[in-house]
Nucleic acid binder design. Structure first.
Length: 840
DNA sequence: TATCGCGGTATTTTT
DNA sequence: TACCGCGATA
């Protein structure tokens, strides 16, 4: 429904690229009727002085350092409105770049709200990649492509690389395609074409074959008329450098350039912007060096740190007034980030009240941590606060599972944000491959992908044969297939399968101009046996996949034809957000950037996990600082409450490890933080306050679960300082040598750390198997009972149901709103009926 | 050609 | 522990 507006409108009515576009009639009429007003009550209303300055400094290079919650997007959108309102530029003269489709969409909406109805405004507002695509499609022939080039997803890219590697006679097991992909991505991020790769780096893959493989890969892409994500920027650079006249067109067109999240730009993007901005120099970059968390993906904090140097005479404006968080939260976050050396430095302040202090809570293990969090959330729920204002932000997705398990048991509604993107999902890419193969018979990658999906007996052997023939005859795979289906080179069975498949493609292709493209898509998925394949599959996510396919078909209606759909699909499809329901959000810290919640839970603040050992090992101080920025991002997501947790024991790759609280905890300014008392329910062991609290505590003779209780009870007894003392030795080491030694023992390799944990069993097969062991099930049972309403269930024994996590199953017994279900895959479980739906 | 079981591996992931 | 990808099997 709002997907229509969610997808950037296909730009069918573009003007000629040569001259700056004249405003359309409606644009002129609208401007005449309702000019946005800058005065009181106008678009400038409510801006603070710095924000206003950022809006009005239209000429020359401008860097807006916008701290978390300081109204960054507001400035950006108002600035665009201002440019338009003052007649300095038409919407089509403004280039506004974002990183995500979501950000682009939001900006579009907000601008529409400021300057007038949506519709044709801002044709050049979009992601780097979307705009790069648009540019390339216009000048494709100048970089050796056709304008209908396809954009490869990561999986296509990997398959292609695998082929390239094997074709070079290299053992793909020793030199995996994934590794090469990350090399190539790295080079592309830095704007390097194959011949520009430093020899030393090229040598590090497959005994010096790196650069050659990169070259071969690029050649394969050109043959296939395809590009990968990196090329969308890289090819623009090549285009503009080799064709000054084309670059000049864009200089004339883009009179003002705005960039969102500048701290996340990589070298290629920097070069891209510099080329475009060099003529008029009206470049406005908005960002926050303290929120740069994508260094590992090629983002260069340096771009923002060097801005004044790169663009001489730049105006730098700092937005430091925070409109989001209460005082203590902001002060805690500021105190933490102040420890970073590589930063331009901002001091956030708020006029809001101090509010609650940031809390720190220690838990015995990750299970208890999940329990404490879920209990707090239940309290929030009981207070009738909205769950959509609550988020749990984790460092790594592996942390999510325990939380999810817990939430499922309690019946707490949650949603996981992130995960695989809609268009990256296997079923979507398969469906797209069918459509591509139908619309573009020369699309070998697409054809190869679906040749044996669903299984039709056309396996590896058949594919090899097709390849051989295609290569020999220099024709696309599809054509080779057609030939082989008629020749007698193949055994009867596969031959018939191939012939049937080709007949199907012919039929679909003949329907293309007679059938609505979305109906055709549905028909293709049906007749190819693809939907059948998932219907037969009994796994938990099969139903979801079928839904996704339906969603895909539905979203096609928004486009005029198949070609238009395929052109835009790879860049703009978003995960279908099931909004509207009141749920707790669980996501990684990375995914949380740009969001805000009343209450934010931050579990897992432990050395090794957060800051992450690997980040430390691989990037030393820079890695540590990026982790610290991540912590800062996490804290600044909170409007009213931020709660930090750490667990003393956590299972890593299946082994139990004893952990030390994160150094970030000790780095928080004490005045704005409090260490929580354990909830009354767990105060049974209060006396044993000093037991079980250190990683090498004396209490290991006590059964695990008892220690957990004691530990929780003593929660308030030891502040950060006590921890520092208790864990002093480990702490010192971990601080000293994060890049090479001391505590370097990689997490999960107990060897070098066991000296801190003598007798404790750093890595065991489960510390909690003592008598009484897991008191868990009992407790859980109790909770389920407590929540049971006793109301008659809507289900009957024998009903087929579908569960969020466990997949399809049959109801075996009913007790109020509790169901006992025999799941096809997961076995017998007891679940709340609100967690299942009827399976058709 | 499909399936089983073994071993290796295990951050973060805007496009 | 859990998953994935590959090689050995039927």
């Amino acid at each position: 429904m709002n997907r229509a507006s969610a997808l950037p409108a296909p730009d069918f009515v573009e003007q000629q690229p040569d001259e700056p576009r004249r405003p359309s009639l409606s644009e002129r009429a609208r401007a005449a009727v309702a000019p946005p007003a800058a005065g009181p009550g106008g678009y400038m209303a409510g801006l603070n002085p710095e924000q206003r300055q950022a809006v009005e400094a239209t000429e020359g290079p401008v860097l807006v350092l916008a701290g978390a919650g300081t109204g960054k997007t507001r400035v950006l959108t108002t600035r665009i409105a201002h440019l338009i309102a003052t007649g300095k530029a038409w919407p089509s003269n403004i280039l506004a770049v974002t990183f995500t489709n979501k950000a682009a969409r939001e900006m579009k909406e907000r601008i529409a709200a400021l300057v007038g109805p949506a519709g044709e405004g801002m044709p050049w507002l979009g992601t780097f990649h979307a705009i790069g695509t648009k540019v390339l499609r216009r000048h494709a022939e100048l970089v050796g492509l056709r304008s209908d080039f396809t954009i490869l997803g990561v999986d296509d890219q990997l398959r292609l690389l695998k082929q390239v590697i094997t074709a070079d006679g290299i053992d793909e097991k020793r030199w995996p395609a994934r590794a090469l992909a990350s090399f190539i991505d790295g080079w592309k991020n830095r704007g390097l074409q194959p011949k520009e790769v430093p020899p030393g780096e090229a040598a590090s893959f497959a005994n010096g074959r790196g650069a050659a493989l990169y070259t071969a890969y690029q050649e394969r892409l050109k043959t296939l008329n395809a590009v990968d994500f990196g090329d969308l920027l890289l090819e623009c650079l090549r285009l503009w450098r080799d064709n000054p006249d084309v670059l000049e067109q864009y200089h004339n067109r883009f009179r003002y350039i705005l960039v969102d999240e500048y701290q996340d730009t990589n070298v290629a993007q920097y070069l891209w912007l510099r080329l475009l901005a060099q003529a008029r120099k009206n470049l406005c970059c908005v960002g926050d060096d303290d929120q740069s968390i994508y260094g590992w993906r090629g983002a260069e904090v340096d771009n923002i740190l060097r801005f004044e140097h790169d663009f001489p005479g730049a105006t730098v404006i700092r937005l430091e007034r925070n409109y989001r968080s209460t005082g203590h939260i902001l002060a805690a976050a500021s105190g933490l980030i102040a420890r970073n050396q590589d930063r331009l430095g901002k001091t956030l302040h708020t006029e809001d009240e101090p509010g609650d202090k940031v809390t720190i809570t220690g838990a015995w293990d990750s299970e208890e941590e999940a329990r404490l969090i879920s209990e707090e959330i239940e309290a929030i729920q009981a207070r009738k606060e909205r769950l959509s204002e609550v988020a749990v932000l984790v460092r790594i997705s592996a942390q999510m599972r325990e939380l999810e398990d817990r939430f499922v048991q309690l019946g707490l509604p949650y949603r996981v944000i992130g995960g695989p993107r809609f268009y990256e999902r296997a079923e979507i890419r398969d469906a797209l491959a069918y459509l591509r193969a139908t619309a573009q018979p020369a699309d070998d990658l697409a054809f190869e992908r679906i040749l044996n999906v669903p299984k039709r007996g056309l396996g590896e052997a058949c594919l090899q044969r097709l390849h051989a023939h295609a290569r020999a005859a220099r024709v696309p795979l599809m054509q080779a297939a057609r030939y082989l289906a008629e020749s007698d080179e193949m055994k009867p069975k596969p031959r018939k399968a191939l012939r049937d498949l080709m007949a199907s493609f012919d039929r679909w292709r003949s329907l293309m101009d007679r059938t609505a493209h979305h109906d055709l898509a549905a028909q293709i998925l049906e007749e190819s046996g693809y939907t059948d394949m998932w219907q037969k599959e009994k796994s938990a996510d099969a139903a979801g996949r079928l839904d996704n396919l339906k969603e895909l078909v539905r979203s096609m209606e928004e486009f005029p034809d198949l070609a238009a759909f395929l052109e835009h699909i790879s860049l703009v499809m978003d995960a279908n957000e099931t909004e509207g329901q009141d749920r707790v959000s669980i996501m990684t810290l990375h995914a949380a950037k740009g969001l805000e919640f009343d209450t934010v839970f931050l579990p897992g603040w432990e050395e090794g996990l957060f800051p992450n050992q690997r980040a430390l090992d691989e990037n030393g101080r820079a890695g540590l600082e990026e982790e610290r920025r991540l912590a800062h991002v996490g804290l600044t997501r909170a409007k009213k409450r931020a709660r930090i947790y750490f667990a003393t024991n956590r299972r890593v790759h299946g082994l139990w490890n004893t952990t030390v609280p994160s150094r970030f905890i000790d780095e928080l300014p004490e005045a704005h933080v409090e260490v929580t008392e354990a909830p009354a329910a767990y105060s049974a062991g209060r006396a044993s306050r000093f037991e079980g609290m250190t990683p090498f505590g004396s209490s290991y003779a006590t059964p695990g679960w008892q220690r957990a209780q004691a530990r929780a009870a003593s929660g308030g007894g030891f502040g950060a300082s006590q921890w520092t003392q208790a864990a002093g030795m480990a702490d010192e080491d971990s601080r000293g040598g994060f890049s090479d030694d001391g505590y370097s023992g990689r997490w999960g390799d107990g060897s070098s750390r066991s000296r801190y944990n003598e007798g404790f069993g750093t890595s065991t097969r489960g510390p909690r198997k003592g008598p009484g062991g897991r008191s868990g099930p009992m407790l859980i049972e109790g909770e389920i009972l407590a929540k049971s309403t006793g109301a008659p269930s809507a289900y009957e024994i024998g009903n087929r149901v579908l569960h969020l996590k466990f997949g399809p199953g049959t109801v075996a017994a009913i007790d109020g709103n509790k169901l006992t279900v025999d799941f096809d895959k997961a076995g017998r479980k007891m679940v709340l009926d609100s967690f299942v739906e009827r399976a058709g």
